[in-house]
Design a protein around this nucleic acid. Sequence first.
DNA 1: ACCTGAACACCGTTCAAGT
DNA 2: ACCTGAACACCGTTCAAGT
Lengths: 218, 218
Amino acid sequence: MGRPAKFTHAQLQSAALSLLDREGLSGLSMRALADELGTGAMTLYNYVPQREAINLLVVEAVIAEAQWERRPDADWREEVRAIASALWRAVRSHPHAIPLILTRRSRAPAVFEITEALLDALARSGRSGPELLVAFRAVSALIMGLAQAELAGPLSLHAAESADDTIARFRALPPERFPHLIEIASAAIESTAEEEFNAGLDLLLAGLDREGASRNTA
Amino acid sequence: MGRPAKFTHAQLQSAALSLLDREGLSGLSMRALADELGTGAMTLYNYVPQREAINLLVVEAVIAEAQWERRPDADWREEVRAIASALWRAVRSHPHAIPLILTRRSRAPAVFEITEALLDALARSGRSGPELLVAFRAVSALIMGLAQAELAGPLSLHAAESADDTIARFRALPPERFPHLIEIASAAIESTAEEEFNAGLDLLLAGLDREGASRNTA
DNA sequence: ACCTGAACACCGTTCAAGT
DNA sequence: ACCTGAACACCGTTCAAGT
């Protein structure tokens, strides 16, 4: 922590994120990031011990974008929904960062805040200890899994290939072997990611509700 | 096609997977894979158009390992559980492949088979079209998200750091700000990945059951 | 047809040197 | 203390050449 210093940590962070958004995962290199900042590659090592720290910086930035209205006295289902949606939206708005987030989200300090908020909401369903852990695991797995699914295709229409190509690829499958695959591919064409996320979360919330209720009455 | 050919496709595939298992994601390079096979890097391009095809080969191999007992007349919940567990186990036994699987699973033909089987089981809950799509999305997001969560820590004890280190890291968090985080970290120490997976899947199955039931009686 | 070495344009990072 | 160019050990891939 000396004097002037050419860049701030925040400058590195936002330059890295915008470079990633613009050029994709393979475009985020030390050399390219240095270029983006108008300096040489080695200068970055004055701010960061290794390349991996840039990845963490990016994950931190994306998670920090998740903002929601805190309402500690709202129904716990509403609160879970608000937090989960905020996280899902933040992640989705930086699709190239998703592989990084999936593998590093728990090493980013910013995730502690939103995780604690989610846990607080889930705890109000009457869970604690191992049950709280499982509820948390399930909700966050669902959020990240659904955010990811969009990128992984082939049910996604927003990938490199067009909707027509996707339909064509599924039409090419033998219908007697893959009738349901063809069925959901058709359904996917008419649905949006938001609808699917909300409906998927509803399924899990129904399970959380029911399991909580059955235990409360037992 | 062609004559002799130095290697079979299956040889490439299993060499790539064992190299990945042994050396990790960064150890799986064209040059290292060629070494593993006792040839030069450029030879691989006789079998594969680009590096990315190696990734797909690996994903294909892992998914193909998911085997389960087909029982088309069993209760749909049991069938979903059997298929989901098989997939989860296959993925978990190749942890270094997880980032590849997450982002490429739907481009691997082997995934069509198991997906159709999962869809068939889910369809027996009385769902079709958009509802079947959402049920499928939720189940597969949960499987992949839970398989991934283990690697991402910090609630994982199987990562590079020891259990004591993990506990210490959470003890260092201010308890008044992160009470629930500390609570589930303690719970995680005494639970296994299998227990968490089964309990998480139970939550979702309860939701699938309830939503299905309410619709059937409406 | 299948094979392969040399070479090119990239990486992250070490080292040694500058102020 | 912060900065930085040269150099090293890697990448994936093109090209041109071998059988």
